[in-house]
Nucleic acid binder design. Structure first.
Length: 445
RNA sequence: GUGGCCAUAGCUCAGUCGGUUAGAGCACGAGAUUGUGGUUCUCGGGGUCGCGGGUUCGAGUCCCGUUGGCCACCCCA
C-alpha cells in the first residue's frame, strides 16, 4: 500500500514547539498591552457569507479571497482581514455593545496571494480598534498602543510613521483631482522605493495627473526634517484647504500628545509619503518599521476610517485601529536572532530513577505543582545520564534527582543544570514540601 | 496574477566532462567500570537525489513539464 505524502499547502505552515512558544509569548504580550488600554476581546467566524467580505476592499482583495460553495450551496469565503468582519460585527451588535467600543481581535486570516519571506496565505493578525468616536484622543491612543506594544515585545529600535490623509486629499481637492486619490496614494506609497520621477510618471498614467499637479503633490510629499520643522513647512502648503488645515492640526495634536505621554520623536515620525494601500482610511494613518530590518515592511499598520460599517448599517460608525503583523514580526525576530534557541519549559525536571517508586514520584511532583512550580516528570526509568541529557537539551533550569539513597534519607538532590552544582535538601517537613526544597528550586541567578 | 533563481539524509551542504555500492558536518539512537547532562571518542539508523516524462548503452548531473521554496513586480501584515 502506498503511503500518503505528508505535506502542507503552499503558504500554510505547521508550528513546531520552537516556533509556537515565541508565537504564544508574542500573543500574550499583545493581549496584555491591549487590555492595559481597556480594549476587550472578541472573536468572529473564520467563514462568512461571500457577500459580507466582497463588498469592500476592491478588486485586489477580491482576487485574494478564498471562496467556495459549502455543502448547502451557500457562497462562503474565508475572512481576508479582521476589519471587515469587525464592521459586520458592529453593525449587527451595536445596540448591545455601546459606543465607543474598543475591541481587540487576535485571529487567523487567509489570503490567496503569492508567498514570500514573512508573507503567507494563512497568517495571524492582532487588531485593535476603537469604534464610535472621532476624537483625536483615539488617534493618540492608537499611536501609544503601537509604541507600547513594540516596546513590550522587546524592540528598541523602531519607528512609527504617521500621516494624515486629509493633508493630501485637501491638496487634491484644490487641484481638482479629488476622485483620483486612490491611484495617487498608491503611486505615492512607492516614493521611497522608486523615487519622485517614477512616481510622477505613474501618477500621470494611472490618474491623469499633469506635470504641474505632480510637482505640487511631490512637494508636499518631500517635506522632511524633524516633526516640528515638517509641521511648519506644511502649513503654507495646505493653508488654502480647510480639509488640509484640519489634517495638519490633527497631526500636530497627535505628535504633541504622544510626546507628552513619553513617546520620543525618534520613535514617532511624521512621514507625509505614507498613504496605506487600502482606500478606506480617511484620516490618521500609521506604519511601523524596524530600524534593524526595514526591508521586511511595516510590522504594525492602521489608521482612521470614518465609515467602517456603511455597507451593513445606516448608523454612522467612525473608528480607528491598527494591526500587528505577527508572522512578519516573528520572521523579523528570527532573522535578528531575538528568539531563544531553546523554548522555555517547566522549571523543574524530575528524572524517573528508582523504578519501583513511581507513585512516590507522582506524589512529589504533584506537591511541587501545588506549590506553584512547573515540573516535568520523565516517563521512563532510563539511565540518569540520558535523562539529564534530555533535560539539558530542553533548557531546564533544575533537575531534582531522587534515587534509592535519597528516598531512604528523605532528601533530594537539587542540581542546577546551568552551573552543574548540586545541593542536598530535605524533601518534606510535616507532610508538606519542605521550604528548603522550594527555595532551592526557585533560586535564580 | 507576471517574471528570475533554486530543489541531494531531519537541517546545512559536497558530488569533477553524463559512468560502477551517493558523501560530510550537525541532529538523532546505542556504547565508552554500577547513579549525574552540556566537551571528547567509537559504532549505528536514516536518501523514491521534490515529483512525472524525455534524451542516452548509462541521468543526482542534460531537456521539457509539474509541485514546492526564495527574490522582484503587484498588493499588503
Amino acid at each position: 500500500m502506498s503511503l500518503i505524502e505528508p505535506r502542507t499547502l503552499k503558504g500554510f505552515r505547521d508550528y513546531l514547539p520552537s516556533a509556537m512558544v515565541p508565537r504564544e509569548h508574542l500573543i500574550d504580550t499583545a493581549r496584555k498591552v491591549y487590555k492595559s488600554y481597556g480594549f476587550l476581546p472578541i472573536d468572529t467566524p473564520a467563514l462568512e457569507y461571500e457577500e459580507i467580505l466582497t463588498g469592500k476592499g476592491g478588486d485586489e482583495s477580491d482576487k485574494q479571497l478564498y471562496r467556495f460553495e459549502d455543502s448547502g450551496g451557500r457562497k462562503v469565503a474565508l475572512r481576508f482581514d479582521l476589519t471587515v468582519p469587525l464592521a459586520r460585527f458592529v453593525a449587527q451588535h451595536s445596540h448591545e455593545l455601546g459606543l465607543p467600543f474598543k475591541r481587540y481581535h487576535i485571529a487567523t486570516v487567509w489570503r490567496g496571494e503569492n508567498t514570500q519571506r514573512g508573507r503567507y496565505r494563512e497568517f495571524m493578525q492582532c487588531d485593535f480598534d476603537t469604534i464610535g468616536s472621532e476624537s483625536i484622543a483615539c488617534d493618540v491612543e492608537t499611536a501609544l498602543v503601537i509604541h507600547d506594544l513594540l516596546q513590550a515585545i522587546g524592540f528598541d529600535d523602531f519607528k512609527i510613521h504617521v500621516n494624515n490623509r486629509r493633508l493630501l486629499t485637501g491638496l487634491l481637492e484644490r487641484l481638482d483631482l479629488e476622485g483620483r486619490s486612490g491611484a495617487v496614494l498608491r503611486a505615492l506609497d512607492k516614493l521611497p522605493k522608486i523615487g519622485p520621477e517614477k512616481v510622477a510618471e505613474e501618477m500621470a498614467t494611472s490618474a491623469g495627473v499633469s506635470a504641474a499637479q505632480a510637482r505640487e503633490i511631490l512637494t508636499l510629499a518631500s517635506v522632511s526634517g524633524t516633526n516640528d520643522a515638517m509641521l511648519a513647512q506644511l502649513e503654507p502648503l495646505v493653508a488654502s484647504s480647510e480639509r488640509g488645515r484640519d489634517g495638519l492640526g490633527k497631526l500636530a495634536t497627535l505628535l504633541g500628545s504622544a510626546r507628552a505621554a513619553g513617546v520620543s520623536d525618534k520613535r514617532l515620525q511624521l512621514d507625509v509619503s505614507i498613504a496605506r494601500g487600502l482606500d478606506y482610511y480617511t484620516g490618521t494613518v500609521f506604519e511601523t518599521f524596524l530600524g534593524a530590518l526595514p526591508t521586511i515592511g511595516s510590522v504594525c499598520s492602521g489608521g482612521r476610517y470614518d465609515d467602517l460599517a456603511s455597507l451593513y448599517t445606516k448608523e454612522r460608525l467612525p473608528g480607528i485601529g491598527a494591526s500587528l503583523g505577527l508572522d512578519r514580526l516573528l520572521a523579523a525576530m528570527e532573522e535578528l536572532k531575538l528568539l531563544p534557541e531553546k523554548p522555555a519549559v517547566a522549571p523543574v525536571f524530575l528524572p524517573y530513577f528508582t523504578e519501583s517508586r513511581l507513585t512516590d514520584y507522582f506524589k512529589l511532583a504533584a506537591r511541587l505543582r501545588q506549590s506553584g512550580l512547573g515540573v516535568e516528570f520523565y516517563p521512563e526509568a532510563k539511565k540518569l545520564g540520558n535523562q539529564l541529557k534530555y533535560a539539558d537539551r530542553r533548557g531546564f533550569r533544575f533537575a531534582l534527582v531522587v534515587g534509592d539513597s535519597e528516598w531512604e534519607a528523605g532528601r533530594g538532590q537539587v542540581k542546577d543544570l546551568k552551573t552543574g552544582s548540586s545541593a542536598s535538601v530535605p524533601l518534606e517537613t510535616n507532610g508538606a514540601v519542605s521550604a528548603e526544597l522550594l527555595a532551592a528550586l526557585t533560586a535564580s541567578h
